[in-house]
C-alpha cells in the first residue's frame, strides 16, 4: 500500500509543478480551498478545505501538531486508501484517519475483525492526514486552486455504483470455520480481560465492605475529593433503604381526614376534566370540526 502511494506521488509531481504559477485560494479562517473532481473530465468539482491541525491540548500522539493536515468535506467515494494516494503528491503520508465529525482522537476498543464492525455511515468525511514531514502540510496548503485533485484515474480506478456493490457483496462472504476462528480468538481475549476486571472489582469490594457496626472505610478517590463510596453496589443499597422507608409509610383511607381528602380529590378531578373538555371543544370549534357536512 505504502509503496504504491509513493509511486502515485512521483507521477503526480510534474503536473503539479506546471500549475504552480496560479495562486492557492485561502479563505478567512485560514483554510485553503482545494478542488477535487472524480474524473479528469468531470464537469463539477467538490471543494476540500485544508488547514494544519491545531488544537490547544492534543493528548494523542497519533496526530502530531506540526505534521497533521486537517481536511474537511471529503466525498463518500474517497476511502482512506484513496485519500492517502491523493495527498501523497505533497509528501509521504504516514497515516490517514477519516471521521464523520471533527473531534479528538478516540482509543479504539478491542481489536475487531471487519465482519464485526458496525456498518459505517457513508457520508462526507473529515480527515486527519499525518505526513512524514511537516513540509507536506505546507505543500498541501499552497496547492493552487485551479489544479484539481482527480480521484479516479486510469492508473488508479475507483469503483462506484454497480461495480462497487457487486464487489461489496462478494467480499461479504467468509467461510464458517474462519468466522469461528475469529470468534474463538475474541472470546479467549475476552475471558482474559474479564478475569482481570473481576480481580479489580473484588479488591474494590473488599475496600467498601461494611464492618459489623455499619461503618464503611472511606478513602480518597483518584481525583482527591471523593468522600462517599461511589459504586454500583453502594447506590443499590441506598435505593433499597429508601424503598423500605416508603413502604412503611403507606396507609390509605385510614383516618377520616384521609377519606375526606380522597373525595375532595375526586371532585377536583371531575372539575378538571370538565374544564379540559370545555377547552378541547373550544379548540375543535375553532377548527370547525362540528360541521356534519
Amino acid at each position: 500500500m505504502f509503496t504504491s502511494g509513493v509511486k502515485g506521488q512521483t507521477k503526480m509531481a510534474p503536473s503539479k509543478k506546471k500549475h504552480a504559477s496560479s495562486q492557492p485560494c485561502i479563505i478567512p479562517g485560514g483554510f485553503t480551498v482545494l478542488s477535487l473532481q472524480f474524473r479528469s473530465d468531470s464537469a463539477a468539482q467538490h471543494k476540500l478545505y485544508v488547514k494544519e491541525h491545531k488544537v490547544r491540548a492534543e493528548k494523542s500522539s497519533r496526530r502530531p501538531l506540526d505534521r497533521t493536515l486537517f481536511v474537511l468535506n471529503i466525498p463518500p467515494y474517497c476511502s482512506e486508501a484513496v485519500v492517502k494516494e491523493l495527498f501523497s503528491q505533497f509528501d509521504c503520508v504516514q497515516s490517514v484517519e477519516l471521521r464523520d465529525h471533527p473531534g479528538s482522537f478516540q482509543e479504539p476498543g478491542p481489536k475487531l475483525s471487519r465482519f464485526f464492525k458496525p456498518a459505517e455511515k457513508k457520508g462526507f468525511k473529515v480527515g486527519y492526514i499525518v505526513f512524514q514531514n511537516s513540509s507536506g502540510v505546507t505543500a498541501a496548503k499552497s496547492h493552487p486552486y485551479n489544479a484539481p485533485l482527480v480521484v479516479c484515474t486510469e492508473q488508479r480506478p475507483v469503483r462506484t455504483g454497480v461495480q462497487k456493490w457487486i464487489q461489496q457483496y462478494t467480499e461479504s462472504f467468509i467461510q464458517p470455520d474462519k468466522l469461528q476462528q475469529i470468534v474463538d480468538s475474541f472470546m479467549e481475549d475476552y475471558d482474559k480481560r474479564k478475569e482481570q476486571e473481576e480481580e479489580r472489582q473484588r479488591k474494590e469490594a473488599e475496600q467498601q465492605q461494611e464492618d459489623e457496626e455499619g461503618w464503611v472505610k472511606v478513602t480518597r478517590g483518584h481525583k482527591g475529593t471523593k468522600a462517599r463510596p461511589h459504586s454500583e453496589a453502594a447506590n443499590k443499597r441506598a435505593l433499597q433503604k429508601e424503598m423500605r422507608k416508603k413502604k412503611r409509610k403507606e396507609l390509605m383511607n385510614f383516618y377520616t381526614w384521609q377519606h375526606r381528602n380522597t373525595q375532595k380529590e375526586h371532585i377536583a378531578e371531575l372539575r378538571k376534566k370538565f374544564e379540559e373538555d370545555k377547552q378541547r371543544i373550544a379548540l375543535l370549534r375553532a377548527q370547525r370540526k362540528f360541521r356534519p357536512y
Partner: peptide, 18 residues
C-alpha cells in the same frame, strides 16, 4: 450547497444504475 458537484455525485455514486 455545491449543487453542480452534488448532481455529478449522483451520477458517480450510481455508476451503472443511473
Amino acid at each position: 450547497p455545491n449543487v453542480e458537484a452534488i448532481l455529478e455525485d449522483f451520477r458517480v455514486m450510481g455508476e451503472g444504475l443511473v
